[in-house]
Design a binder for these strands. Structure first.
Lengths: 98, 98
DNA sequence: TTTGCATATTAGAATATTATAATATTCAAA
DNA sequence: TTTGAATATTATAATATTCTAATATGCAAA
């Protein structure tokens, strides 16, 4: 049985991830990415947010290690790094649909 | 197949819930509550945070409909309202342990 | 080697969140 | 009916987040 200090550390780690998910636009981006890679343009078109804002969100998530970028000519493709996160997001979508 | 506007609304709803979970102390409280009811005192002792802060977090979650309170003499027992949320929290604990 | 498209960065004002301290309420037992 | 324990509320300073606008960078085709 784990220690309380240990449990708190885990909560802090998970809360940090959730903080990133806990934003309507970022969650929307991640829901899209949970289905597979997408370019910044695609994500911008789908979300309707400004290019700058999308890029800022993606940069933040890149820094946090949640997504990875892959350049292909002019376009940059993003994807979710940890498959467990993709699974969690899909699961949440299912759980909270109605 | 749902509309994009519809998807955005769902993201906003889910993000609002996640925003509440996305705080180390609140997540700790919820992890404890996911196992069953607990009083404010228990939660305070377990978390080590101040009485005022615990109460503020609980009041916030009560307002949001995430938890419910039940008074029993001097003590107030809290519990998570939606079993789907309990399940999600347990699931996240499992997912992110290691 | 310039032009244009795709993406990234930066700065800053507006707003939201957090924790602490102080005070108020609610209830039970003496 | 006062006292004390358990919980709630309020105000506020400190900090963090968000968005917009402006500018910069990377790349490819002409």
């Amino acid at each position: 049985m784990p220690d309380i200090a240990e449990a708190k550390k885990r909560c802090a780690r998970v809360a940090a991830i959730l903080k990133t998910l806990a934003h309507p636009q970022r969650l929307f981006l991640l829901c899209r990415l949970a289905k597979g890679e997408a370019t910044v343009s695609e994500l911008r078109d789908a979300s309707g947010a400004s290019q700058s804002l999308i890029s800022q969100h993606l940069t933040r998530m890149r820094r946090e290690g949640i997504v990875q970028a892959r350049r292909d000519g002019n376009f940059v493709h993003y994807r979710i790094v940890d498959p467990r996160l993709s699974a969690l997001i899909k699961d949440m979508e299912k759980t909270f649909n109605e």
